[in-house]
Design a binder for these strands. Structure first.
Length: 501
RNA sequence: GCGCUCGUUGUCUAGGGGCUAUGAUGGAUCCCUGCCACGGAUCCGGCCCGGGUUCAAAUCCCGGCGAGCGCACCA
């Protein structure tokens, strides 16, 4: 796409102008990359997405929990993030170029044994092997560490870190879950909360943040349930747009739309439970308003997978701004995490199966909310010669209804305000606007994606009907005032279509 | 963090040492307006931050911060 950048600029301009998001934050001090503020409309939209996510999980029998965002060092030692997140870095003294020290040594001296070496030992190794900057032949500085976790402290001297994922904090509750779920597995929980990653160089605006809201659903499950999953039959015949790794290795990106059952038979998924998780992730994104045409499920190649992941599929969303964007990962984490926390905490993080202790496996659905937030705006954007508008599905639109008096006359305004109060009372998010021509007010709402506008005119005073104007078609229908709130609620919930009114 | 390019009202933008910084769009109040950015009046709002050169800096130089692209990074 030649107009990639244009589209990205259009979206960012619109979002800044209309109060979806601002940044980088704090703007008045110049801003720090990777931090953004949500404006009123962005926050409304995010709340709606989180609402859809929450209800999808709850319908799938998950229970929501919330954990602290800061945890003592030991937690991250156990989880592997302390070692996994600290990269050894060396900087060229002459040109300032940075390198991963271990990668550099391995690349230039494949025979060197560097596994498990400390930072000082890596520095020695570089000197010993006479390794210099590949780019300018300058001398390399001492090996230091770069930590992708944000470090802080508790009290005077306890080292702690902001969580880089919510999942680990969820696992720490495993013993409590056993009690809550009355010692029965599977146990399904999820968490929506902030996570922090100290990215070296955040790019692509809202897509790579240093602080973001993460959603992570976890199933603690035993092998027997994985292969014979209670809820699997419900979804076995649903089709998914799949891109398994074998196809990608053939340099193809052709998605095959096949049923979950078929995918399992073809070996794309190892177990029923994992397949169900991929399906659930897909459903969650559908509920947020993404259409089939912009979604695909892509399996990670073998070398893409994280150390703990036995299998990994992503939900990807197509955007005009960035092409395909990775939005959600579904991982089979095995029993890595619980085993590690069992070792480090010395707690009994297992269940008894046939009188033997078994550490259950964990299946995980993980994603950040800001990515789908951006992708949804990107997908929703439409323009023609006449206007530009955001085609949000009504159920996730930030403002659901706007109310206008046809003109700013007292007799129209007093009725309009009564109607505004009625709708407000119903719980819909509503906006009142009396300023400017009626066309201008419709355009303002189009630009922020408000699906329905209600206009009070002189006929309203005669026959108590108002017009509802549809954002996408710009068509209007008249409805009785006493039916208005019910009609609007049905429209917004997607229980009725405007064209059927 | 490196390299290249860039940073002017809410948004988009012209200018590139010299009176009061250009235009569009937007917003506010009023008039007009009987359904899709009409028109009129009045008003609002800007040179990213710091230092330097100069009689004079939005403009030139240095540094910082930020953005886009490329490199590196992305558990």
């Amino acid at each position: 796409m030649s107009d990639d950048k244009d589209h990205q600029e259009i979206i960012y301009g619109l979002c800044k102008k209309r109060g979806f998001f601002w940044g980088p934050s704090p703007e008045i001090y110049g801003g720090a990359a990777g931090l953004y503020d949500l404006g009123p409309l962005g926050k409304l939209l995010k709340n709606r997405l989180e609402g859809q996510i929450r209800s999808s999980f709850v319908k799938a029998n998950f229970w929501e929990v919330e954990c602290p965002t800061v945890s003592p060092e030991i937690v991250w030692k156990a989880s592997g993030h302390l070692d996994g997140f600290i990269d050894p870095i060396t900087e060229c003294i002459k040109c300032g170029q940075n390198y991963r020290a271990d990668d550099l040594i391995e690349e230039l001296a494949p025979d060197a044994k560097i596994k498990g070496l400390s930072l000082d030992e890596l520095t020695e190794k570089i000197n010993e092997l006479g390794i210099v900057c590949p780019s300018c032949k300058g001398e390399l500085g001492p090996v230091t560490q770069y930590n992708l976790m944000l470090r802080t402290q508790l009290g005077l001297d306890q080292v702690a870190y902001m969580r880089p994922e919510t999942a680990t904090t969820t696992y720490l509750l495993f013993k409590r879950f056993l009690t809550f779920f009355r010692n029965k597995l599977p146990a399904q929980v999820f968490q929506i909360g902030k996570a922090y990653r100290n990215e070296i160089s955040p790019r692509q605006g809202m897509l790579r943040l240093r602080e973001f809201t993460q959603v992570e659903g976890q199933i603690f499950i035993l092998k027997a349930d994985e292969v014979d999953w209670e809820y699997f039959p419900d979804i076995a015949d649903d089709k998914l747009p799949l891109l398994p790794y074998q196809i990608q290795e053939e340099e193809s990106d052709e998605v095959s739309n096949i049923t979950v059952k078929e995918a399992l038979e073809k070996g794309y998924f190892a177990t029923q439970a994992y397949a169900w998780c991929v399906h659930l992730a897909y459903q969650i994104f559908r509920s947020m308003g993404f259409t089939n045409e912009v979604m695909r499920l892509r399996q990670h190649l073998m070398n893409e997978r994280a150390h703990y992941a036995k299998d990994a599929w992503d939900v990807e969303i197509f955007t005009e701004s960035f092409g395909w964007v990775e939005c959600c990962g579904v991982h089979d984490r095995g029993n890595y995490d619980l085993t590690r926390h069992k070792e480090f905490s010395k707690e009994k993080l297992y269940v008894k199966v046939d009188k033997k202790p078994v550490v259950p496996n964990v299946l995980e659905i993980a994603f950040g909310v800001e990515r789908p937030l951006y992708c949804l705006i990107d997908n929703a954007y439409e323009e023609d010669e006449e206007r530009s508008w955001l085609r949000f599905p009504p159920r996730v639109a930030p403002i659901q209804v706007a109310v206008f008096p046809l003109m700013g006359k007292d007799e129209l305004e007093s009725v309009a305000k009564d109607i505004y109060d009625d709708i407000l009372e119903s719980g819909l998010i509503i906006y009142y606007d009396r300023s400017g021509s009626i066309g201008r007010r419709y355009r303002r709402q189009d630009e922020v994606g408000t699906p329905y506008c209600v206009t009070i005119d002189y006929d309203t005073l005669e026959d108590t009907t108002v017009t509802i104007r549809d954002r996408d078609s710009m068509d209007q229908v008249r409805v009785k005032r006493e039916n208005l709130v019910v009609v609007l609620r049905n429209l917004v919930r997607g229980e009725k279509r405007f064209s059927d009114l």
